[in-house]
C-alpha cells in the first residue's frame, strides 16, 4: 500500500559494504515507508543477500560508506541484537540449526527481548505458550516443533515457517525476508506467503529478496527493484517483475554495459 504521507521507516543512502577485501555493495539507495512491500530482485552475486545481512548487522560485513537510518536513528551504530529489539527483522535464507537450545525457550527469550524494548511486560512460560500457540496458526505449524531444538532436523520448508513464526512473535516494523521462497514446494510457499500477508499492516513494511516471480505472485509488491553489481539499477511497480520473468536478466547486463560505457 503506497501512501506518500506515510512515515519513512528505512532510509538507505549510498550504502557501500565489503566482505573481506571484496566490495559488494557499491552505492545502494532505497527508501521504505510504512505500509509498503518492496521486492529486490537480481542474479546471484548481485549483492541482494549482502544488503540484507548488512542491514541486520552481520559481523562479517564491513560498511565502507553511506548511511542507513531506521525511523531517523542511525542503524549502523547498533549491535545486531539492538536492531532486532527495535523492530528490524531478518528472515534467513539458510536458518542455522542450534542443537540443544529448545525452540520454545529461544522464541520466548527473543520475544521478551523485543517486548522489553517496547516497554511491554515480560511473558512467563505459561503466558508465552498461549501467545505462541496462537501465532503458530499464521504458518500452520505443528506445536511439536516447539519442543525440538532450534531448526534441528527441520526440513527446508519447516525452517522457513519457523522464520515466519519468529516474525509473527517479534512483530517487526521492517521485515527483510532473504530468499524466503528458496527450497519451498508450492504448498509451503503458499503457507509462508500467506503468513507474510497476514502480518502486513499499514504500520510495518516488508522487504522481499528473491530471484523469482513466483513469490511475487503470492505477495504483491508495491515496488520492485532490480539489483546488479551492488547497486539498484532500476525501480518500478510489480510489472517490472513480470518483465524480468519474460525477458530474463540479459537486458540487465546490457544496461550495465551501457552504463559502464557512459561512465567511460
Amino acid at each position: 500500500m503506497i501512501r506518500p504521507d506515510a512515515p519513512v521507516l528505512l532510509e538507505i543512502r549510498d550504502l557501500h559494504a565489503r566482505v573481506e577485501a571484496k566490495e559488494i555493495l557499491k552505492g545502494v539507495n532505497l527508501t521504505i515507508r510504512a505500509g509498503e512491500v518492496h521486492a529486490v530482485m537480481g542474479r546471484n552475486g548481485s549483492g541482494k543477500s549482502t544488503l540484507s545481512k548488512v542491514l541486520a548487522g552481520h559481523p562479517a560485513y564491513t560498511v565502507t560508506g553511506g548511511t542507513v537510518h531506521y525511523r531517523g536513528e542511525n542503524l549502523l551504530e547498533l549491535d545486531p541484537e539492538q536492531r532486532a529489539r527495535i523492530g528490524v527483522f531478518l528472515g534467513f535464507q539458510y536458518p542455522v540449526e542450534i542443537p540443544g537450545v529448545s525452540n520454545l525457550e529461544f522464541l520466548r527469550v527473543a520475544t521478551n527481548a523485543r517486548r522489553a524494548q517496547k516497554g511491554e511486560e515480560e511473558l512467563d512460560t505459561f503466558a508465552f505458550e498461549d501467545l505462541v500457540r496462537d501465532r503458530l496458526k499464521v504458518v500452520q505449524m505443528d506445536p511439536a516443533f516447539l519442543d525440538r531444538s532450534v531448526n534441528e532436523g527441520f526440513s527446508g520448508g519447516e525452517k522457513k515457517r519457523n522464520e515466519i513464526l519468529q516474525m509473527a512473535l517479534l512483530d517487526p516494523l521492517v521485515a527483510i525476508l532473504d530468499e524466503t521462497d528458496s527450497g519451498l514446494d508450492i504448498d509451503a510457499l503458499r503457507i509462508v506467503a500467506g503468513g507474510v500477508n497476514q502480518l502486513a499492516t499499514p504500520d510495518n513494511a516488508t522487504l522481499l529478496i528473491t530471484h523469482y516471480q513466483r513469490l511475487l505472485d503470492a505477495i504483491t509488491p508495491d515496488y520492485v527493484h532490480v539489483m546488479a553489481a551492488g547497486r539498484i539499477l532500476r525501480t518500478g511497480g510489480k510489472e517490472l517483475a513480470l518483465e524480468l520473468e519474460e525477458r530474463g536478466y540479459d537486458w540487465v547486463d546490457q544496461e550495465l554495459a551501457a552504463l559502464a560505457g557512459e561512465v567511460a
Binding site: 549491535d79 541484537e81 542455522v96 542450534i98 527473543a110 519468529q166
Partner: peptide, 14 residues
Amino acid sequence: EDQLFYLQSRGIGF
C-alpha cells in the same frame, strides 16, 4: 559465528 549471529538477530545479547 553464524549461530551467534542468528540468536543476536533475534534480539538475544551476545
